[in-house]
């Protein structure tokens, strides 16, 4: 097993799938000649040529809609959004067209498209470039949403997404692009809809996704070392479909739950998870479910304040102690 970065893992997934299936096409702004705005697609143009790796104009509604249309005829486009924040100008295509076509055609038409790119705050770029739309998109039946937190999951989930016959939206994180981890060279996928217990514990369940998993793992270490608390960290990996069983199993064991996400709290992913826990494991709980999310405001530019706006290790530790009190 090689140790590679999250970025390299994503690239390896695309390279594998480009080799495996001639219908896979990578498309997006600056993905080819420029080697990718975040260098995720670096070298792919050289390796696969301009038919497979396609630079698009700045025209998200146009090129994503084009990818959706092409996918209906069997092409498997992997569209890069420079930021998921820019998906908002293509919202109609992403939601109405990709998300509804199978349903409205009574199952006659499939839309095997992948849209991927970073969806995160914490990079000091202000409100327009810091959106995390996983909850917004996951609220639409017909769409799948995954948020890998590690290089292993990034490669496995992206490969699963490309092979999936439904639209899958992969939300990455620029802050994680350089994170390294062990990733198998051989072919594997991470099934969409399966959460992963990233740390085993007995006193408290932390449910998280994306970079909040990394934050939570760090918090779990401090809680163990300084407070003698054994924390289990469940990484959702997939927002929709949601792995209810893994969440509930953990809560039934620890009887306490803290939900951590980098989204804004209102209608966030964890609002759904909290509802799930109270509806299916209410009697198991020894304390109310708590949440840690970003402070409910548009993303602030000032870096010092942005770091406070988003869930930090300190905030997760403090909130965990409240659940445990």
């Amino acid at each position: 097993m090689a140790v590679i970065s999250y970025r390299e893992a994503l690239r390896a997934a695309m390279r594998d799938e480009l080799n495996r299936d001639k219908n896979v096409v990578i498309m997006g702004e600056e993905v080819a000649q420029f080697n990718g705005a975040y260098k995720v697609t670096e070298g792919l143009l050289k390796e696969f040529g301009p038919k497979r790796i396609v630079d698009t104009p700045i025209s998200e509604a146009g090129f994503i809609g084009l990818g959706i249309g092409a996918s209906m005829l069997g092409i498997r486009p992997v569209m890069e959004l420079m930021f998921w924040s820019f998906s908002y100008v293509a919202f109609d295509q992403i939601v109405n067209n990709a998300g509804n076509i199978r349903y409205m055609s009574g199952g006659l038409i499939n839309c095997p498209i992948v849209i991927r790119g970073p969806a995160n705050g914490g990079t000091n770029v202000g409100a327009t470039h810091s959106h995390t739309p996983e909850a917004i998109l996951a609220s639409h039946p017909g769409i799948k949403v995954v948020c890998p937190a590690t290089p292993y999951d990034a490669k496995g989930l992206l490969k699963a997404a490309i092979r999936d016959n439904d639209p899958v939206y992969v939300m990455e994180n620029t802050i994680l692009y350089n994170d390294k981890g062990e990733v198998p060279d051989e072919d594997y996928i991470v099934p969409i809809g399966v959460a992963d217990v990233k740390r085993v514990g007995t006193d408290l369940t932390i449910v998280a996704h994306g970079r909040a998993v990394i934050t939570s793992l760090k918090a779990a270490e401090i809680l163990e070392k300084d407070h003698g608390v054994s924390v289990e960290v469940v990484d959702l990996r997939s927002i929709r479909p949601l792995d209810e069983e893994t969440i509930l199993k953990s809560v039934r064991k620890t009887h306490r739950a803290l939900l951590v996400e980098e989204n804004k709290p209102f209608c966030g992913v964890d609002a759904q998870v909290a509802y799930l826990i109270q509806s299916k494991a209410f009697d198991e709980l020894d304390a109310p479910v708590h949440r840690v999310s970003s402070i409910d405001a548009p993303q602030i530019y000032c870096k010092r304040m942005e770091d406070l706006q988003m869930p930090s290790v300190e905030r997760v530790v403090a909130e965990a102690l409240k659940v445990l009190a």
């Binding site: 809609g65 249309g69 209906m72 109609d92 109405n96």
Partner: peptide, 25 residues
């Protein structure tokens, strides 16, 4: 026949994509 679309103009990128797929193939 690929529809049948309720959002005014929303089908234009899809049709362009169908043409792209034909050419790609």
């Amino acid at each position: 026949y690929w529809g049948g679309h309720g959002i005014v103009g929303g089908q234009a990128p899809l049709g362009t994509g169908l043409a792209y797929a034909v050419k790609y193939q």
